[in-house]
Nucleic acid binder design. Structure first.
Length: 501
RNA sequence: GGCCCCAUCGUCUAACGGUGAGGACACAGGAUUUUCAUUCCUGAAAUAGGGGUUCGAUUCCCCUUGGGGUCACCA
């Protein structure tokens, strides 16, 4: 916790809109959000779209939607407002231009006319030679008049920052003291032209102008930090404090890539992970609450508990491997907690629409509301994600064809099985549809099962109703299916058996 | 390759310099059960290696090894 600062804590997530919302970005957003909430600070959303080629306006949408889905509502941002806007870098061109010009005027930056090829060749040569590839521009000390003359003549150019040579030290919020040698960094490009700023410049400037106090981001940006600190100082700004989060790794220890599977928030949402579960899971990637006792389920924490417990100083330094198993476990826990009716609505809306349409084309009747709710209740402990629903419970809608012999319990035989199924049928016939529910049926059928052998009665019954070797109990099935459908399935089972060899 | 960062069970991680190195996920076995799932119990499983400092090192320092990041006119 940051105690003594009179300054209000202001943090940001500053993605570039390139099409999707990576879970790593989501995690960085979450940690910033937690840090803000806990310090009574402000969480800012900024769009870094200085790269006109890669950035598209419509790409912003999934990011904001993703943030909101997670329950991370920015306090300031494009389409949200705030006193430090605009929050879209493409709309801040004038600001950047002023500062680029100023750096040029103050001789802290200069025009460089070296070609891309030249720079690349130099880089490769140095790399081959075992040196740190640092580009030393032959145009660094060109007089302003000469440089401007070349620019006026239309010579291709970029603008480089004169990187100071000394050591750059800073105290990382999660890693502590870190230092870089400015000499080994070289004069980097801050703009393609006076009015075409690049990442480092716009980012540093916006952090300063938007009064960002803490820049919390992925470790992949660690080596950018000395550049940004130097740049900020050159423009007479005090750099924010930096904190670098451990990277999220795939199970092989590499960067999380498409090859591994789902890497975007949208994909997880589509598969039916709940935002609460994702929030919880993401918070545990590189961070852990301090454990006081030996109590269990410490890791399942509510949003409020996480905000309360979160501590940037406890963030891990090493990379964190993405664990789908743990996510599933957490998600299942949250699914169980969900209100059944609400869960049903969500399932129907986003996860079984296609299945239901297919069934309706086939003329399969839809379950009653009561059956729906029972099914959802049953599905809760079986689903790791909402998209599992249909795979788990499809047999409730439509019985698939099965091998008649599978109706026969272990060492039993066809005759006994038919006999038992018929006995059950009689019991069911004698039960009124209004009374056709779990407890009643259990009481009526169990005595028969005890008498004839549980497996010998219950297995065929359950199998006849589900057509599956694994399913919920026969009483659950009867309850959901109702009298008519249950009897239909039993009849079918008996005739299947009778016809089998 | 240079630079930077990192290193406790398979994974996420806990442990004022003094613990039988703890928990969770996953895994295995058992109990309950007609099956699956659930639930409960039990188990296996780690301080990368080598040097220091110290009465004592997972913890502090150094080296080695290993892993990762980064070296753009992307962000």
């Amino acid at each position: 916790m940051i105690k003594d600062s009179k300054k209000q804590v202001r943090v940001r997530i500053a993605p570039s809109p390139t099409g999707y919302f990576h879970v790593g970005t989501a995690r960085a957003a979450l940690f910033n959000y937690l840090f803000a909430k806990q310090n009574n600070g402000v969480f800012i959303f900024r769009i870094e779209d200085t790269d006109e080629v890669r950035s598209k306006k419509e790409y912003e949408k999934p990011i904001l939607e993703g943030l909101r889905w997670l329950g991370i509502e920015p306090d300031e941002g494009p389409d949200i407002g705030g006193e430090f806007g605009p929050y879209r870098q493409s709309e801040r061109a004038d600001i950047y231009k002023t500062y680029v010009q100023k750096l040029l005027d103050e001789n802290k930056a200069y025009y460089c006319f070296a070609s891309k090829e030249e720079v690349e060749a130099r880089r490769e040569a140095m790399l081959a030679d075992g040196q740190t590839p640092v580009f030393i521009s032959p145009y660094k000390d060109l007089s302003k008049e000469e440089a401007l003359a070349k620019v006026a003549a239309g010579e291709a150019h970029v603008i480089r920052f004169k990187m100071p040579e000394g050591e750059i030290k800073f105290k990382d919020l999660v890693r502590g003291e870190i230092s870089f040698d400015g000499k080994l960094i070289g004069d980097f490009v801050i703009a393609r032209d006076v009015d075409k700023p690049l990442f480092h410049l716009s980012s540093v400037l916006d952090d300063a102008l938007m009064k960002i106090t803490h820049a919390i981001r992925g470790e992949d940006l660690l080596s950018n930090t000395p550049r940004q600190i130097a740049l900020a100082k050159a423009m007479n700004f005090e750099p924010p404090e930096y904190g670098h989060l451990p990277l999220i790794l795939d199970p092989k220890g590499g960067k999380l890539s498409k090859r591994f599977g789902a890497t975007t928030l949208e994909e997880y949402k589509e598969q039916g992970y709940l935002p609460e579960a994702m929030f919880n899971f993401l918070s545990l990637l590189g961070w852990h609450p301090k454990e006081t006792g030996s109590s269990q389920n410490l890791e399942k924490m509510s949003r409020e508990e996480i905000i309360e417990e979160f501590d940037i100083a406890r963030v891990q330094k090493g990379g964190a491997v993405w664990s789908s198993e743990k996510l599933d476990w957490l998600n299942n826990l949250y699914i169980r907690e969900m209100d059944t009716e609400e869960l049903l609505k969500l399932l129907k809306k986003d996860f079984i629409k296609d299945d239901l349409e297919r069934l309706s084309v086939q003329g399969v009747p839809m379950p009653s509301q009561r059956s729906w709710l029972k099914m959802v209740e049953l599905s809760k402990e079986r689903m790791n994600k909402l998209s599992d629903f249909f795979a788990e419970l499809h047999f409730f809608f439509k019985l698939a064809s099965y091998e008649a012999n599978d109706l026969i319990w272990k060492n039993s035989d066809k005759e006994r099985t038919i006999e038992n199924l018929q006995s059950v049928e009689q019991i069911l016939e004698g039960t009124s549809p209004d009374n056709f529910e779990l407890k009643v049926l259990e009481e009526k059928i169990m005595p028969l099962a005890e008498e004839k052998g549980r497996g010998d009665v219950l297995w065929p019954l359950r199998f006849a109703l589900s057509g599956q070797k694994a399913s919920p109990s026969p009483f659950e099935l009867l309850d959901v299916l109702g009298k008519q459908e249950s009897l239909l399935r039993l009849d079918l089972a008996i005739s299947n058996l009778a016809a089998s060899s």
